[in-house]
Design a protein around this nucleic acid. Structure first.
Length: 138
DNA sequence: GCCAACGTTGGC
DNA sequence: GCCAACGTTGGC
């Protein structure tokens, strides 16, 4: 079981869109590091859902329901997609500023490699983030 | 294989 | 809208 963080600009595809659709094909990734991460995703893995640009924050959870396969939206064989399903929307999003406040999260790729659109998250970071989400929801 | 030029991402 | 970070491209 692994944990990930996937990014999307809410104007393009938001957690609400995923909630409505229940499930989506995560396409459009055109970066090799991100692609490699998607290849490593296993069914049942959890992906933190991150809104970039307009409201930088972790807004909820999604789950991998189909492992990587060739991206049907391009002829290029280099790219893959996964299918993810809606899992949860946090009552209160965890803003990027909030993430920066906690020493336990200071090594997150989100802070170190801010441009990477599919990132690995450690179990420790994931557990801490869930705890944080619950506290903020109060 | 190096590196300059260029394009894109994303925080602010 | 600006700009830093960083990935990609292409000339040499």
């Amino acid at each position: 079981m692994n944990y990930w963080l996937i990014k999307s600009e809410p104007g393009t595809y938001s957690i609400d869109d995923l909630k409505k659709e229940k499930k989506t094909m995560w396409n459009g990734v055109r970066n090799y590091t991100a692609r490699n991460n998607m290849r490593d995703m296993k069914k049942g893995d959890i992906c933190l859902f991150y809104h970039s640009v307009t409201d930088p924050s972790i807004v909820g959870l999604s789950k991998v329901v189909k492992e990587s396969y060739q991206d049907p939206t391009t002829e290029e064989t280099a790219w893959v997609v996964v299918d993810v399903a809606f899992e949860e929307k946090f009552k209160t999003p965890i803003s990027l500023n909030e993430v920066k406040l906690h020493p336990k999260l200071e090594n997150m790729q989100l802070l170190k490699q801010s441009r990477l659109s599919v990132q690995k998250v450690t179990k420790e970071e994931y557990d801490f983030i869930l705890k944080l989400a619950k506290e903020l929801a109060k």
